[in-house]
């Protein structure tokens, strides 16, 4: 993919959130997207047509992260109210509330089978919750982190989590190992490459770091944006050719994966770009910002 194919054209602006939008996520097939924000709501959109479909209200405080099952039937969300909510997408009702985190929950993800919700919280723990049973107790609590856990990624057999203590920890369920990659800088967000071999970690020293997952080697560093105090998302494009991420000055940056040069950067929002999500298949991207908008970018 050449640089010209990067989604730089604003296709839609999704307005509706009152206040900052903290996360925007494509669903599994990229037809819909979910956003959540400080207005304590989760919103479901069709980003391609720019339609707001549904609002999910139940959170008592800001919603920090949301994730949807691959079959689009369930949602999970988390936020400042220290709970993980398990929603039914169609009815918009909360199926279960997982309580147990001692403080704000930063990130939440379903596993592949949507049987487990994994949440990461400010209480330095990663907790896994069972969606199959009626238990609201966590299946497992991973509390080896030394500081707030900001972001998680799941593979078929691993839980990856990035923490402010500067580590990206991989919990391999298959071999029962915890692999800790210390980056030396607070990790804000982690994102997996589509081939699953690399992990992109956004650090608070305004650097994105690409790590090789098998060896823990630092492959590349991406600089140019500002990321010093906000939780800013980063991700790789669908082809793994570029790295993209927001900046605190409202810019979106595209780096070349290999030579780490800034391929493109443009001002997308008037304020901090909190979240970026790349379409799984197309050259399409959504970004959310503190300015309350979600923008859809296409080539």
């Amino acid at each position: 993919m050449s640089a010209s194919d990067l989604p730089r054209k604003e296709a839609n602006v999704l307005r509706g959130h009152e206040g900052a939008v903290l996360a925007a996520r494509f669903n599994g097939d990229g037809n819909y997207c979910l956003s959540c924000g400080k207005d304590r709501t989760i919103r479901l959109w069709n980003p391609h047509r720019g339609i707001h479909i549904k609002t999910y209200k139940s959170h008592g405080r800001e919603v920090r992260d949301v994730h949807v099952t691959p079959d689009n039937s369930k949602l999970c969300s988390c936020g400042g109210d220290r709970q993980v909510f398990y929603w039914d997408v169609s009815t918009g009702r909360v199926i279960r509330k997982f309580r147990g985190h001692d403080s704000e929950v930063n990130a939440v993800k379903f596993n592949e089978y949507a049987s487990v919700v994994v949440s990461a919280g400010y209480d330095r723990s990663v907790r896994t919750w069972d969606c199959r049973s009626h238990s609201t107790e966590p299946i497992q609590i991973i509390d080896t982190f030394l500081d707030s856990v900001m972001s998680i990624c799941l593979t078929k057999s691993e839980i990856l989590a990035g923490s402010v203590d500067g580590t990206v920890r991989t919990f391999d369920i298959r071999i029962g190992r915890e692999i800790s990659d210390d980056l030396g800088q607070p990790v804000n967000c982690i994102s997996m490459s589509n081939d699953g071999n690399c992990i992109l970690a956004s650090c608070l020293d305004s650097t994105l770091r690409l790590l090789d997952r098998t060896t823990g080697e630092l492959l590349q560093e991406y600089k140019g944006h500002i990321c010093k105090s906000y939780k800013l998302d980063c991700c790789l494009t669908n082809t793994d050719a570029h790295v993209t991420g927001g900046s605190e000055d409202g810019f979106i940056f595209f780096w070349d994966l290999v030579d780490a040069s800034v391929v493109s950067s443009f001002r997308a929002h008037s304020s901090v770009v909190t979240s970026v999500s790349y379409h799984p298949k197309d050259n399409c991207m959504i970004t959310s910002s503190v300015d309350g908008t979600i923008r859809v970018w296409k080539t």
Binding site: N111, E112, Y113, S115, V116, T128, D130, R132, I139, Q140, I142, T144, K156, S157, G166, V168, F171, D172, I173, R174, I175, G176, R177, E178, I179, S180, D181, D182, L183, G184, Q185, R209, L211, T215, G216, E217, L218
Partner: peptide
């Protein structure tokens, strides 16, 4: 740069249910 990233490995025990839910044999 030399120091980081630093890789360490620890033992970690996934709970049996987690393994089950992930469809993985409990190591």
């Amino acid at each position: 740069k030399k120091m980081y990233p630093k890789r360490e490995e620890f033992q970690w025990r996934p709970s049996p249910i987690l393994c089950k839910r992930f469809d993985i044999i409990d190591p």
